[in-house]
């Protein structure tokens, strides 16, 4: 199961504003986005993140997995995470 490394020094505020100091880019995230990114920063792997989504949110495992895949794809596109 995939593990992801989140780029260091990301500044994420509770309001969903993300600043990437290395590149000067900024992003906005919704609450689920923040949740996933924080879990990844804690070092959780794909399975663990998906499981915690299912535990805390009103979502089934398939949906969570599909959305997670799409979200990771966007994070990768923006160089915010790398597969380890």
């Amino acid at each position: 199961m995939s593990n992801y490394i989140v780029s260091s020094n990301l500044a994420i505020s509770d309001s969903g504003f993300l600043f990437y100091p290395a590149t000067g880019e900024s992003f906005t995230l919704n609450q689920i986005g923040i949740f996933i990114l924080n879990k990844l920063r804690e070092g959780k792997d794909e399975n663990a993140v998906i499981q915690s989504l299912v535990d805390e949110y009103d979502v089934d495992k398939n949906t969570a997995e599909r959305d997670f895949t799409d979200f990771i794809y966007q994070l990768k596109q923006n160089n915010l995470v790398q597969e380890s």
Partner: peptide, 13 residues
């Protein structure tokens, strides 16, 4: 009660 879910989104500004 579980929290309301929506698709995770990240948008570059």
């Amino acid at each position: 009660d579980k929290k309301r879910y929506e698709r995770p989104v990240i948008i570059k500004q």
